[in-house]
Simulated scan of single mutants.
Amino acid sequence: MHPLDNPAWASLTGPHAHFAERRGNALRYPVEVSPFVALPADPEPADWEDMAALAGPGGLVPFAAFAATPPEGWEVVDSVEGVQLSGEDVMGAPDPEAVILGPGDVPDMLDLVERARPGPFAIRTFEMGTYLGIRRDGVLVAMAGERLHPPGWTEVSAVCTDEAFRGQGLGSRLVLAVAAGIRDRGEIPFLHAAAFNTTAIRLYQALGFRLRRQAMFPAVRVPADVPVA
């Protein structure tokens, strides 16, 4: 199986194994890092039982680019249709205005995420990889960074720009800057985007990313009465 076919599993059993909270074949990131959970491809009933034990009765388990059917009684709370784009042809380019964001920047990062809504981002998400930002008059107005990390690949994520600064190409510049760092490690960048976000998809394709596959992002709730050993 290709690492991008089950990217959260490949990450949590590979370069991000140090983050993994595990019960049998069920894995997840700490919630302050990422909401995503992971199961092997074609999970067995015992794997779903492990996930129930890991998440707890009534727990919400969001999957990344994963389409397995949950057992009877598990509620699919949400399911976002997305696309996965790979960057074999994207070399990237450093950006002189981009700065590395770290622990001291987390309040500003969370504030930008609240304004721009790029997707899940928590207080320790920046630990998943390198995050770059652009500031104007001291204010963080654009950001992008690294999220899932299957072997040989790194996801570019949290691409966002303050509404007042859109249309200046800041997002494109940061995507290429993050991609350049990924390439410097000998890895290949990839992306996910919501299928309805055609503007972002066109932008990523213009930067050289290619559509690899359709991808679902389901959030499933463990039954409240599930028996947990």
Results as ranks from 00 to 15, higher is better:
S11H: 01
D50L: 09
L211I: 12
P57W: 11
A17W: 05
R124Q: 15
A17E: 11
A10D: 14
G152N: 10
A224S: 14
F217E: 04
F19N: 02
L85D: 09
D50T: 10
V178P: 09
I182R: 03
M91E: 15
Q214E: 14
E97Q: 13
S157Y: 02
P3W: 15
G208M: 08
G145N: 07
G87M: 08
P107D: 06
P103Y: 02
S172C: 09
L174G: 01
A180T: 10
D137Q: 14
R28G: 10
A52Q: 04
V159N: 00
A158L: 03
R183V: 12
P70Q: 00
R183G: 08
G104R: 04
D5G: 13
T199H: 12
G138W: 07
V178N: 08
A67C: 02
P227W: 13
F196K: 14
A26I: 10
G58A: 03
R212A: 15
V80Y: 11
S86E: 15
L85H: 06
D108R: 02
L12D: 10
A98Q: 01
T125Q: 06
P107E: 00
I182G: 07
G133R: 07
S157P: 00
H192R: 09
L207G: 06
A200N: 01
V178C: 11
R136Q: 15
D78A: 07
P7V: 13
G133C: 05
Q205F: 07
A179E: 08
I188A: 13
N6T: 15
R185F: 05
V90H: 04
P150K: 10
E146I: 11
T130P: 00
R202P: 07
A195L: 12
S86A: 14
D95C: 08
D47K: 14
C160Y: 03
A200Y: 03
V61P: 00
G104F: 04
R212Y: 10
I201K: 04
Y29F: 15
R166Y: 09
N25V: 02
L110I: 04
S11Y: 02
P70A: 02
A93Y: 03
G208F: 10
W48V: 13
Q84T: 02
P70K: 05
F217S: 06
V156E: 06
P118K: 01
S11I: 09
Q168F: 13
G208W: 03
E114D: 15
A144K: 03
A38C: 12
A194H: 07
D47N: 14
H18N: 07
F190I: 06
P70W: 01
D95H: 12
A206E: 12
A142Y: 01
R135D: 09
Q214F: 10
A200S: 06
A8C: 13
F190G: 01
Y204V: 00
R117N: 15
N197I: 02
A158T: 13
E44P: 06
G145Q: 11
F63R: 00
L170Y: 05
D105K: 01
P96C: 01
L191Y: 14
E44H: 11
P118F: 00
W9V: 11
W48H: 13
A122V: 01
A164L: 12
H16S: 06
F217R: 10
